[in-house]
Simulated assay, not measured.
Amino acid sequence: MLLLVNAILTLWVSWAHGQEITCDPPIIPNGDFAPKMNQYGLDDVITYRCGNGFYPPLIGNKTECTVLGWRPRPRCVLKPCRFPEIKHGRLLHGNTSKYFPVYVGRSLLYFCDYGYTPPSQTSLAIMNCTQDGWSPVIPCLRKCSFKSLKHGYSPVTEERYVQGQTRTVMCHLGYGLQNPQNTMTCTETGWSPPPTCIPVKHCDMPIFENARAVITGKPFRPNDTLDYQCLDGYENRDGSTKGSMVCGKGGWSHLPTCFKSADKCGPPPAISNGDITSFPLKEYPPWSRVEYQCQAYYELRGPTDVICSYGKWSKPPRCIDPCVISEEIMNEKNIQLKRKDNKRYYVKTGDTVEFMCKSGHKAVTSKESFQAVCREGAVAFPRCE
């Protein structure tokens, strides 16, 4: 109502003084418009477009100069979320349409099917459109219950869990879960492994490689320990020549990993414009993995990590050079950046840079050349004269 009163007063004042109603050029972050003028008259219409990853918030991309200014207000918003498909649930009827975009910041109401629950564990929940997509990522979580356990210790009362939660299970002596651990996790399909205690066999004497048992005995009961000694010239990953393993419900905790000292690797290979992500060591045991990362604006090409094998590292990755866009080069070509200032900046390999001619100059290269692609430190600049 206040806007309408102001508009009427503006019209009256303009009529009384014989002044024409005009609009200044709009400011559209992340967008551009045409035609460009210093001033626009009443009912003038402009067309605007948004940059990569941004979209007009309404259907259409035109705006008109009115007594209230530019209407509808031109603006560019982040990429909308796709119509949500809720596994094991549904949207509340009538709160959106498949054919209408959902923009960042909007919320939708939904509910889950029987046996599933939202993370909030309420009957009706909210999902939000964010820059990274819908949140929560998993709208409906499976519900699991635990109340009885044959050949094991049951809870006093029924316990309830949701997808992702873990519960420790205690089986009677000689029994265990299907996996070597004593925990089960609530998954989309229910408990994994199922809350069932099955008979667990004893541990037999393992087959050693590059090691021998200190004390032999057969069979080994759960929780029994077996010590082993590496053969001459061999050692463990920690550099020692001795170790021990424990008989568990699913078998031995681990098997000896004795290797030759000559199979160790020295420091990982150095790469240009990059380094490893962990603190470097003087020596690395066989089958060690080391991860690499590149400096800012450099693109990692090849495997992310290297592996130590028989005293040698696998081939490391490379860090691909970015393209340098400088003001000096653009001045030589009579060009400028389309949506940035002309200061020096860096572009990753594969990214596109948009140029335009400077004022008073015309293009002498193709239209496609003004959308140049950075290729391993090199970019083909367009030219204007």
Results as ranks from 00 to 15, higher is better:
residue 1 M to F: 10
residue 109 L to K: 11
residue 21 I to F: 05
residue 189 T to K: 05
residue 253 S to F: 02
residue 126 I to Q: 03
residue 375 R to H: 07
residue 340 K to H: 07
residue 363 A to W: 01
residue 278 S to H: 14
residue 229 Q to S: 07
residue 201 K to L: 12
residue 336 Q to V: 14
residue 257 T to S: 12
residue 82 R to Y: 08
residue 375 R to L: 02
residue 114 Y to G: 10
residue 116 Y to P: 00
residue 307 I to W: 01
residue 340 K to T: 09
residue 297 Y to I: 00
residue 57 P to N: 12
residue 99 Y to G: 09
residue 362 K to H: 04
residue 210 N to K: 03
residue 317 P to A: 12
residue 50 C to F: 03
residue 270 A to L: 15
residue 190 G to V: 03
residue 134 W to T: 04
residue 66 T to R: 04
residue 122 T to N: 13
residue 77 V to F: 03
residue 93 H to K: 08
residue 238 D to G: 08
residue 331 N to G: 13
residue 74 P to E: 05
residue 8 I to S: 05
residue 295 Q to E: 08
residue 365 T to I: 01
residue 63 T to D: 04
residue 21 I to E: 11
residue 226 L to K: 00
residue 269 P to R: 09
residue 218 K to E: 10
residue 317 P to I: 03
residue 63 T to I: 09
residue 162 V to T: 13
residue 182 N to C: 04
residue 320 I to M: 15
residue 67 V to F: 13
residue 101 P to L: 01
residue 279 F to E: 06
residue 6 N to Y: 11
residue 140 C to H: 01
residue 151 H to D: 14
residue 63 T to H: 11
residue 203 C to V: 07
residue 251 G to S: 04
residue 58 L to G: 05
residue 214 V to N: 09
residue 360 G to A: 06
residue 259 F to D: 00
residue 38 N to F: 05
residue 54 F to T: 02
residue 124 L to W: 13
residue 15 W to G: 14
residue 164 G to W: 10
residue 221 R to V: 15
residue 370 F to P: 00
residue 298 Y to L: 03
residue 300 L to K: 13
residue 338 K to A: 06
residue 189 T to A: 15
residue 148 S to T: 15
residue 359 S to T: 12
residue 230 C to S: 15
residue 287 W to T: 06
residue 38 N to W: 12
residue 140 C to N: 00
residue 135 S to V: 12
residue 30 N to Q: 13
residue 63 T to F: 01
residue 131 Q to S: 14
residue 314 S to P: 02
residue 71 R to M: 14
residue 112 C to V: 03
residue 151 H to M: 14
residue 13 V to W: 10
residue 144 C to K: 03
residue 348 K to M: 10
residue 344 R to G: 02
residue 112 C to L: 11
residue 278 S to Q: 15
residue 123 S to H: 04
residue 19 Q to L: 11
residue 238 D to K: 11
residue 7 A to Y: 12
residue 46 I to A: 00
residue 127 M to A: 03
residue 300 L to V: 02
residue 29 P to C: 14
residue 197 C to F: 09
residue 48 Y to M: 09
residue 25 P to V: 04
residue 44 D to R: 08
residue 65 C to F: 08
residue 244 S to F: 08
residue 222 P to N: 11
residue 336 Q to A: 05
residue 172 H to Y: 05
residue 313 W to K: 02
residue 271 I to E: 08
residue 337 L to R: 07
residue 63 T to Q: 14
residue 102 V to E: 02
residue 222 P to W: 13
residue 330 M to Q: 09
residue 362 K to F: 06
residue 376 E to P: 03
residue 199 P to Y: 12
residue 237 R to W: 12
residue 162 V to S: 03
residue 192 S to T: 06
residue 169 V to H: 01
residue 53 G to R: 12
residue 3 L to P: 06
residue 344 R to E: 09
residue 321 D to V: 12
residue 15 W to N: 10
residue 2 L to I: 06
residue 12 W to P: 01
residue 68 L to F: 12
residue 364 V to Q: 13
residue 15 W to P: 15
residue 223 N to R: 11
residue 143 K to Y: 12
residue 210 N to V: 04
residue 353 V to K: 00
residue 365 T to W: 00
residue 186 C to F: 15
residue 293 Q to F: 11
residue 28 I to Y: 05
residue 227 D to W: 04
residue 65 C to D: 10
residue 202 H to N: 14
residue 201 K to P: 01
residue 360 G to D: 11
